[in-house]
Design a protein around this nucleic acid. Sequence first.
DNA 1: CGTACTTTTGAATCGCATCAAATCTGGTGG
DNA 2: CCACCAGATTTGATGCGATTCAAAAGTACG
Lengths: 203, 203
Amino acid sequence: MEWQTLIESQPFLAHVPLRLRKATECRKMLAGDVLFRIGDHVRSLFCVVTGEVQLVRHGVRGTKIVLQRSRGGFLAEASLGSKAYHCDAEVNEAGMLLCFPPAAFRTALEDDAPFRNVWMGLLAREVRKLRAQCERLSLNGAAERIIHYIESEGINNAVTLNQPRKAWASELGLSHETLYRTLKRLGDQGLLRINGKRISLVR
Amino acid sequence: MEWQTLIESQPFLAHVPLRLRKATECRKMLAGDVLFRIGDHVRSLFCVVTGEVQLVRHGVRGTKIVLQRSRGGFLAEASLGSKAYHCDAEVNEAGMLLCFPPAAFRTALEDDAPFRNVWMGLLAREVRKLRAQCERLSLNGAAERIIHYIESEGINNAVTLNQPRKAWASELGLSHETLYRTLKRLGDQGLLRINGKRISLVR
DNA sequence: CGTACTTTTGAATCGCATCAAATCTGGTGG
DNA sequence: CCACCAGATTTGATGCGATTCAAAAGTACG
């Protein structure tokens, strides 16, 4: 796959230095694949391009504890600093995957100041986004979560969804039925303006 | 306040180089204080030592959107890379605050490789923790959240709470009543062993 | 000893998840 | 072009579980 194509889905990749690109593998993954298991030596830093990967830990009673679900972006960034993984990585949906050799990645961070700054910026923005999402998920009402989403992630009190509403519902921690119903109710009340994929707060 | 004391509450601070320490101010804050407002020029990178600070955005109808609640640790790390703040910071509970000059902080990251690596590790671990918390908050049942917490944050399927259960309830996105009741139920069912502040999964 | 806070238990209410089913949509191949 | 299919979207009915309000008992601390 061409880097130009990759960059479109993950703008961060534009800043990966040439030397590191050459050491990076791009490979397909199939649903059910296991990228790594807990305790495995860290051989790659993964970046999901398409498809879905889950980081999980298997609990005492066969329970499955999901630590991260990724449909794009880096997986387990903290593994850059450790020798072994602390969870399993399972592929939920077939797709494409970038595999960075951790040593080369660390070298690039060490030697290439602009790349390093972009990386730190990426991490800091991810932290910001996740903190806002945690606060949002702590809210009780469906309407409150929707409004919180628009006010924290939107631009000028409006968002343009780049995913089906069903997926948005999951991001909001709601059933899709509740999301549809609440959107309609807020629209009827005149609190929200809904134009296809564009949703904006009124006044 | 002595650095030695600060380090006990925030181990990361042990790695702050001397030059940066000298440029850092430690000051008291009172409930109601405003650390910065949206649009303000970034003058400090804040680290909460004690007390509580909230990052908020004020919505269109006087609604208050909480982006982060911090009772220890850095505030708005992403502000390191931007000129102005994108939210307000309000003090909820009086306490102590470290104020790093952003330029000196960036210089330290640039020049001091070990410090920089500790910082990147801190960000990566924060990302990991927050992603797990988001997955946890997406779970419906109180019991599921409690078990997820122990399996993801605990050591050997056990956690030792360093905060009152009421605060734990808030972190789990539950009312404290529900947390108490569910803990008792899980204990009665033999799924959980509860010894004061130590809570462990059975089997 | 008193005050503030946490922990605990009870009862009533409400909102969301769930199950079910119909409609709509975009994309595929005949 | 139409038939068809897999998803997404929409609406309805039901039950459960969490929130909420209330109040009592326990605990830490000055």
